[in-house]
Design a protein around this nucleic acid. Structure first.
Length: 679
DNA sequence: GCTGTCAAAGTTTTT
DNA sequence: CTTTGACAGC
């Protein structure tokens, strides 16, 4: 009888969510209520007892990390053979797969480039011909929101009310044309283009609906309009899917996500099954009470209240400190001391913060105290110059039409190609409707370039062609060789040591080596060709790399990147007005002050972020805020966050910083003990 | 025209 | 501390 082999460690609500297969199902899962367990168990149930083949099940997540973790948990539950063909990936990865297969239907080469936010911004900058960074970001954001709402340039232009939006709509049109010329798509397109094709093409739609017989979606509250449509289109009339989400943890409204998608399910699907998970298995009661108390200041779609069978736990600490440096040091000393007192491991501690920049001081302090740590969040690694340099070569190999990568590769290292040459080449390419790379081989016939300018171009073109031929001739097994050959042929290491001082060159070369090692491992593990690798790398951040390097380390993470994770002991730092809730810069702040609705929405989202932070903690939670914080080059005076008082803490809050002693004698003693123990 | 050197400035959150 | 912007030699 189906269901009898379900593990007994599921509660009634979880069991119901796993076994419900009569159509669409929405699971409202509070923080720590075992939502991942429900998804993984449900997939196991579908595979083992309902005769579903892995090829017909798709589970979607928002981050690669979540996908990886989920995939591993499923594989530990069921036989490898049963899980064969199972798809567990992000919306964007599924989009890449879809577009690779269906590329020709929409006039796209399967080797299309994927442009990240930085690439996209560079295009917009060129189109707008301005260096006003705020304006550029605003236009980019506007275009992105239009895309996620499935509005094309024409519709956007029609709906534009302000001159600013009209300009953005014009840029949008050229931006699309540019991407098309480069055979490139941006992140938003990875979901939008599949949706558009599925809507327009019945045959494609039916093929995919045949393929996706059961769909599961994690973090459903973070879906945008486009992603909602994708779920609808993939599941069709059968509507066999399970969406798991928590409206209180919606923290991506700024990138187009809309919590209303939760409510929309209840109206779009009359037969929607709604299941609430309210029992929390993660945290002690004090932490849950604080979380409940904070979030009760928000209006919400669905009422739920977390409870747990764990004890009350220790009281929540609130520390006021003089400066951000002192805060970082205090956190380090506290962790050091507590690790000793509690006989805990480094990995039991996490330090969470609102913005990436806060990581700097913390890293500095932890380094000084010899505390091992890993930083997660921020795609900074792939934004580093040396990484973008190397990837430009790879992207060009895969897609010759990728002009930005051509420009970057051909000018790094310097090989005598500069602004003037590129301008001539660009004009030639534009009038002939070809890519810069193609233009290299044709411009020689004309007399537009001096031999001095032409020669390095032709050498470069021949070089790329040579590697390209190798990449195409040899199969996926030789990905690693090709990478090595490419890098040594470029002479990138020497370039680094030539242009930088020893220390910097070494650090950057190490980054390149790390990237190569990671790429090679990836290529081997999943037997990927160079094309697969390049498309994969655009979507992934390198969190995995750090996790494996040093498993016993304190975790530093942004609040956003911490979602879905849990730690025994959590330090939440910088809990200050202006930072959490974040209010942007002064000009931004004034815009907000003028619009009460916008301000309220902002504060509510920040409050959910606070809620996410609090609910990461299993046993203890410590908050801190600074009276002064260094921002840019000046100190800013700060007030404690409203969220601290909203937590309804019983004990009086330490609200005034004590300039004399930021460390209590006990804290000092513990820290010292810990240090002594080490030496 | 190409390239390197010097100075300034800059930071929400991410697929 | 690290990435962009302007300027002056080669």
């Amino acid at each position: 009888m189906p269901g009898d082999t379900l593990p007994v460690d599921l509660n009634a609500a979880q069991r119901e969510a796993v076994k419900y297969l009569n159509g669409p199902c929405l699971v409202l899962a509070g923080a720590g209520s075992g939502k991942t367990r429900v998804i993984t168990q449900k997939i196991a149930y579908l595979l083992r007892e309902c005769g579903y083949s892995g090829r017909h099940i798709v589970a979607l997540t928002f981050t690669n990390k979540a996908a990886k973790e989920m995939s591993e948990r499923i594989r530990s539950l069921v036989d490898t053979r049963l899980a064969r063909g199972l798809t567990v990936c992000t919306f964007h990865s599924l989009g890449v797969r879809f577009l690779r297969e269906e590329a020709e239907q929409i006039n796209l080469k399967p080797q299309f480039s994927i442009f990240d936010a930085t690439d996209a911004l560079a295009i917009i900058q060129e189109l707008l011909a301005t260096t006003d960074k705020a304006r550029l970001r605003a236009v980019q954001q506007t275009i992105s929101l239009w895309k996620n709402a499935m509005l094309g340039p024409d519709e956007a232009a029609q709906r534009a009310l302000t001159p600013s939006d009209e300009e953005a709509a014009r840029v949008y049109r050229s931006y699309e044309a540019t991407l098309n010329a480069y055979q490139a798509v941006d992140f938003d397109d990875l979901v939008r283009l599949p949706v558009r094709l599925l809507e327009q093409n019945t045959a494609v739609r039916e093929r995919w609906q045949q393929r996706v017989q059961y769909l599961l979606v994690d973090e459903y509250q973070d879906t945008n309009e486009c992603q909602y449509r994708l779920v609808q289109l993939l599941t069709g009339d059968r509507a066999q899917f399970t969406a798991v989400g928590d409206d209180d943890q919606a923290i991506y409204a700024w990138r187009g996500a809309t919590v209303e998608n939760l409510a929309k399910l209840t109206t779009d699907y009359a037969n929607l099954k709604l299941i609430k998970l309210e029992q929390n298995y993660r945290s002690v009661q004090r932490i849950l009470s604080a979380a409940n108390s904070v979030i009760s200041h928000n209006p919400n779609l669905f009422n739920k209240r977390l409870w747990s069978e764990h004890g009350a736990g220790e009281s929540i600490g609130v520390k006021a400190i003089d400066s951000d440096e002192a805060e970082a040091e205090w956190v380090g000393l506290s962790i050091s001391g507590q690790r000793f007192d509690r006989r805990a491991e480094w990995r039991d501690f996490a330090v969470l913060y609102r913005s990436n920049q806060q990581a700097r001081v913390l890293e500095q302090a932890l380094r000084n105290l010899r505390i091992p740590y890993t930083v997660s969040g921020g795609q900074s690694f792939f934004d580093k110059a040396e990484i973008r340099d190397v990837l430009a070569y790879l992207r060009l190999l895969v897609n010759e039409a990728d002009d930005p990568s051509f420009i970057r590769a051909v000018t790094t290292p310097r090989r005598g190609v500069g602004q003037g040459t590129l301008k001539t080449l660009g004009q030639f390419a534009a009038t002939h409707g070809i890519s810069l790379f193609e233009a290299v081989f044709q411009i020689g016939m004309t007399e537009q370039l001096a031999p001095r300018q032409l020669e390095p171009l032709e050498t470069f073109g021949a070089f790329i062609n040579r590697i390209q031929a190798r990449a195409q001739k040899d199969g996926p097994d030789s990905s690693a060789e090709i990478l090595d050959e490419l890098i040594s042929a470029i002479g990138y290491e020497r370039h680094l040591y030539d242009t930088l001082d020893e220390r910097q060159a070494q650090a950057r070369w190490q980054n390149v080596l790390d990237l190569l090692a990671w790429l090679k491992r990836k290529a081997q593990e999943d037997s990927l060709t160079v094309i697969d690798l390049v498309q994969h790398v655009a979507l992934v951040s390198m969190l995995e790399r750090h996790d494996e390097a040093d498993p016993d380390a304190v975790k530093l993470s942004t609040l956003h990147a911490s979602k879905g994770l849990e730690y025994p002991h959590v330090f939440l730092v910088g809990v200050e007005e202006g930072l959490l809730p974040h209010m942007g810069r002064e000009d931004d702040e004034q815009v907000l002050a003028a619009d009460a609705n916008m301000l309220a929405a902002r504060v509510q989202e920040e409050r959910r972020l606070m809620y996410v932070g609090i609910t990461r903690a299993q046993r203890t939670l410590t908050l801190s805020w600074c009276k002064r914080r260094r921002r840019a080059r000046e100190d800013v005076v700060r007030e404690p966050s409203r969220f601290i008082s909203e937590m309804g803490l019983a004990s009086p809050v330490d609200a005034s910083p004590d300039p004399q002693a930021n460390y209590s004698p006990k804290e000092r003693l513990s820290a010292l003990k810990s240090l002594l123990q080490k030496t």
